[in-house]
Design a protein around this nucleic acid. Sequence first.
DNA 1: CTTGTTTTGTTCGATTGTTAAAATAACCAG
DNA 2: CTGGTTATTTTAACAATCGAACAAAACAAG
Lengths: 161, 161
Amino acid sequence: MDRTDDSLIALRRILRATELYARELAHSAGLTPAQLRVLQIVDEKSSATPKDLAKQMGVSQATITALVDKLVSRNQVCRVPSQTDRRQTNVTITPEGHETLVNAPDALQQKFVRSFEALEDWEQAMLVAALERIATMLDAEEIDAAPVLTTGELQMGGRRI
Amino acid sequence: MDRTDDSLIALRRILRATELYARELAHSAGLTPAQLRVLQIVDEKSSATPKDLAKQMGVSQATITALVDKLVSRNQVCRVPSQTDRRQTNVTITPEGHETLVNAPDALQQKFVRSFEALEDWEQAMLVAALERIATMLDAEEIDAAPVLTTGELQMGGRRI
DNA sequence: CTTGTTTTGTTCGATTGTTAAAATAACCAG
DNA sequence: CTGGTTATTTTAACAATCGAACAAAACAAG
């Protein structure tokens, strides 16, 4: 009867499934999960600065430096000095890196896409609406700017996502 | 117009928001994200073996041993030898560990729960139905048993979650 | 009961992820 | 030019992770 709990439980199932698959996927691509995520972001945006990557992934720039070092040594990405601002470095994907992504057997992706595209039109529309609504609930105020609450604030019990 | 892409984009927003918040939350609780997750699972189930934890989190048992060691040294959990099977160890949460969870300022949680509970009844029902449907799509066949596809399999393009 | 196999958990060694703080270098405003 | 800001890397230390090897207990078949 408690819909809030039901929604949180379903959300956790989604998070767990995607995370476990992400590990599997990275492993079969011969990379670590963190490295694969860098590669994916760089591929999607076709070019990203370390600062962008750090913000997107929620880690420090020092971490990005280390990850990019690893990917560079494997010829998956390369560093291209920015023309407009010589402080910046653009990380771009190499043909080898793109090949890695194309060959990554994204089982979760495949399963989801197949299931989703098998649905009736109105069902798809409903799911997209629901997902977007939930996404907006979760990332409403940009995470980066979210003030870190200190202990003693209002609590909602032991629930969590 | 491509609903599949829209759904994946929304899903990624959800994943990113929850992951970024998980880091923040763990940090403000004085633990690492991995340690906090162990603590959460142990609290939820009130007792879990290292094998359970490894399976739930998708890491090796060796990793769990290391994480539990850290939590034990901070008095957040303790190891209780199983009575029924002396090979097994039950990891249980301590009062201090429970206190840690209660005091963890779960901002994401609070925001989501507040937003969700402010919705109309039918809207909540719709979201729960959508979430459960998606969760089922994603974790249908238990991940642990999922065969690792090798390269050369059917690909769905560059999409990913 | 004894032997061989499986299950559970830990230890060890090595690699990777992660951060804070310091160091570098370039931008920008006056 | 000077001082302040921004982007990135370096360094040093700690945490996460795994595979392989190990020990102990359960179990199965004779």
